[in-house]
Write a protein that binds this DNA or RNA. Structure first.
Lengths: 342, 342
DNA sequence: CTATTTCACGAAAACGTTTTCGTTAATTTC
DNA sequence: GAAATTAACGAAAACGTTTTCGTGAAATAG
């Protein structure tokens, strides 16, 4: 019932706790004979070192924290998968917390993780987060912090991102290249840096091609749980108000799929009447009809890179080397499908 | 840099560590005056109790483990959300591990969690898991274990499931009720208990209606990463071999969506030529065209119920009450959409 | 054969809490 | 005013490791 300890093994073997500990860790000052005896008894008793005690002693937990705005989300779940896969390889456990895009919750969760004495933290911040005190707390405690996807530019730590502006330019340029003359944009929340960057990319592409920017053609979506509905609603508004629009770049795939559905319901043909480009490359986008042209956002790779960076910083700290922060920008690519012309 | 400890607070206040500890926890044998002093200093120093030390002392970690076959999965990510939401409410942290449907990995992960001294474990087992020694280890260590969705019937612990057989009967019955005369089934892996149960439900519905069971109409899908492709391939085979089939009940939505795509490519009309029912009610199923009739599998509720059960068992143990295991069966429902006739 | 080195092990402190049990001083009781 | 109670605090053990530093005994060196 109660767990096996070093002391119990020591007693049965009539040796000391220190020797047992050292035997299990192959210290050179333990004879092969006792090592064998100890290891054998340890396995037969199914000994498992008590992580609390080890952590307390070594001041390391081999555990990291991960705070993410949402779990039920194709992109984020891919990120998680990337992180977990890497963490597993390096022998780290991951405590996952969901901030629900709430600053207050995020703050509380950082506190929880610090109490838990995790070795480091990975975070994609909530849209509502405007204060970064909780995050600089992490840094000032000397714990590595790596932000990904939704980052705070002001914070001095490593970051893993994509180039939202460039990706948005690519998306919009593709609409222009395939003959669209009047291009709308469904943007995300006003406070989300990613949405802002994608919006800027959209405008840049217009400017680069001497298209007139018309703020009437920009619709705002919250991109929360009702993304699909938002896409439908805005698509309907768009069609009613602006008959001349023949292309739309949409902040996220789910909203875009809502738009596609609305267009289909209204008899607006895609891409003949209007071309659509989404953002993220959710799996869904490849199987709907018409399939959605979109920007591939490499979630798995982002997660992988984020953990790797955290891991290097952990090693740097451990070896008393200077910790160097990196900003890693991963490539996106335009996936051409049936919702745009060739 | 280094963390604040009770000792540091004690020294600054010229009192003992014990008093500081008790003051922070509002012990009655500490004067209000010192309590106030201690608490004030604690907050200004930003004191955070060292979880390792607390856990070591109290033999509780307020942490649970969660092992799940896959993260990038609409159903499972909903389960996770349900678990995290409840855990947060009760002040528990969750370490998430992904078994990738591998028994070996699952075994290793259980071991990791036990070393970590989590208070309890939630698990949905891998398809390849046939031995349950690692799971009974958990139980014999006196730690609560709650299985959900993919369970081992043989194990004496609490379980949260749906009634796969009934759900499959409902799905098949709906095909029969809407006029299908010859009904195929795309089943899941031979080793997966859920697949087996759904297959049995399919057969039961046929029998109940005096339909002949024809093993030629049953196709096997692995339901792994290439579910969509499997759906396409099997749908093509089905159409080529059995022109007379007018309905198909498919083990999971993703495979069903692959089938829908293949039917569309081959000019087979859904539901006029063939009706399709899926399983799980992934979000995607509502937005494709034709939208997919399917069985709703309440992931969020399952996660919520699983954590709640774990929590009650935790409390029961703590209060030295007898731990009672429960099998909780959550309701599924048929969601009628456009892939079946009315 | 003494002096040094190597070998194999153990004692003990430390990590930061929690909690039991004293202990002293102040207060109350009769 | 002596006896009993209460109030407020501290000492110390314990949780299970890890690791440093001794310490004898055995092996080697001169």
């Amino acid at each position: 019932m109660s767990q096996v300890t070093l002391l119990q093994i020591a007693d049965k073997l009539k040796i000391s706790v220190s020797t047992v500990s050292k035997a299990l860790k192959d210290y050179p000052d333990v004879s092969e004979k006792t090592k064998a005896l100890v290891k054998e008894l340890a396995t037969t008793l199914n000994y498992k070192p008590n992580a609390f005690a080890v952590n307390l002693r070594t001041k390391e937990s081999k555990t990291i924290g991960l705070i993410i705005p949402a779990i039920v989300h194709h992109f984020f779940s891919n990120v998680i998968k990337g992180i977990l896969t890497q963490a597993e390889k390096k022998g780290y456990l991951v405590i996952i917390l969901q901030s629900n895009e709430s600053y207050e919750l995020e703050k509380k969760q950082i506190d929880l993780l610090l109490r838990q004495r995790v070795d480091g933290i990975l975070i994609s911040i909530a849209n509502s987060t405007r204060n970064f005190g909780h995050l600089s707390d992490v840094l000032s405690q000397g714990k590595p912090l790596v932000m990904f996807d939704k980052i705070a530019k002001i914070l001095e730590c490593s970051k893993v991102v994509i180039d939202d502006r460039k990706a948005a330019r690519d998306a919009t340029q593709h609409l222009i290249d395939t003959g669209c003359k009047r291009i709308a944009h469904f943007r995300g929340p006003l406070l989300s840096q990613n949405s802002i960057d994608r919006f800027i990319g959209y405008r840049e592409a217009l400017e680069n091609n001497n298209y007139v920017y018309d703020s009437d053609l920009v619709y705002i979506c919250e991109c929360g749980d009702s993304s699909f509905e938002e896409g439908k609603i805005n698509a309907k508004k768009l069609v009613q108000k602006h008959k001349d629009v023949d292309g739309v770049f949409i902040n996220t795939d789910l909203v875009a799929i809502g738009a596609l559905t609305a267009f289909s319901e209204m008899g607006v043909r895609v891409p003949d009447d209007i071309s659509v480009v989404g953002f993220s490359n959710w799996f869904m986008s490849s199987v709907i009809s018409p399939s959605l042209t979109t920007i591939n956002q490499p979630g798995y790779k982002i997660g992988k890179a984020a953990f790797k960076q955290l891991y290097t910083e952990l090693k740097q700290r451990k070896n008393n080397l200077p910790v160097v922060h990196k900003k890693i920008t991963l490539n996106t690519e335009l996936i051409k499908r049936a919702s745009t012309k060739v």
